[in-house]
Amino acid sequence: MSSDLLLEVKNLSCHFDVSKPWLNRLIEREPQRFLTAVDNVSFNINRGETFALVGESGSGKSTIAKLIVDLIHPSSGQILFDGLSLRETQGETFKTLRRRIQMIFQDPFASLNPRWRVGDIIAEPIDAFGLAKGQGEVSKRVETLLDKVGLSGRDQHKYPHEFSGGQRQRIAIARALSAQPDFLVCDEPTSALDVSVQAQILNLMQDLQDEFGLTYLFISHDLSVVKHMANRIGVLYLGSMVENSESDQLFKQPAHPYTRMLLDAIPDHEMSGRRRKQVTGEIPSPIDPPSGCTFHPRCEFANTKCTQERPKIHEINGSFVSCWASAENRISISS
């Protein structure tokens, strides 16, 4: 099924230098300090599927999104899109590759230029990639795109402030689609929206996926949204991928203790009578992460091995899990 593979992330790491200025370091005799935002993460996304990344704030979700669209550069590792890397291609190939990967940001109040008319915002990628010739054709394309996302063609003459949050996110989606991409990185696309508007946007995203055969990388902290949208889910903790499984499998049989903890923490908004378990502790600082498995201080299954050695990734029932307790069958599979 290698032809189905669209995006391949291999051993991706990203460190940020958070040291003091060198003179201070020299005088105070302090070493350089690094923050590990993404730590050796690998995953694959198949064509037409929705891959979701979940985790608490500070787990590295958004950093991975920015790495994939090449807004920041990785410290090591590779991101291959159809076998090509944005960092290694040049000229026409680079430009095509750039066009095929687009991003939708979290906050539609910040991601649209308030001084530009909506039509210009959407037309910019069309012009940049030369996808239409002449004003007339560009304007016609903008109209079709606005129509596709459920706005009217007349809206192209308005400014972003004339729209509500949900409508702005529709504009952001139209802008992303104007480059005719295959792959959309959606960084918390509905977190800033109300539930009823969220439902509209999620439905729209599914319709567009069916129509244009899009592939999504969907980043969210809301597990019920992720369950609704994703085929596969990657769970991040402190920059590393602790579990990567099929959506149904993850919710039915979470293998990593952290995934279980996340699932237990979801509020029971349907009042099905499920007891919500108390989460203990908070995510540690990525500057000075715990030794061994980074989750061990919060894990009820941790033993000495967990505090010393980093767990390797192993496979159970099609899920990729990085946990000693699960590898050594110290925890039962079904919860």
């Binding site: 009823s196 439902a199 509209q200 439905n203 597990l223 369950k227």
Partner: peptide, 17 residues
């Protein structure tokens, strides 16, 4: 209530107002 994605049931489309 219908617009909230459910954890217990699988629905293809969310109810939208």
């Amino acid at each position: 209530m219908g617009s909230i994605p459910s954890l217990t049931e699988r629905v293809d489309r969310l109810v939208q107002i």
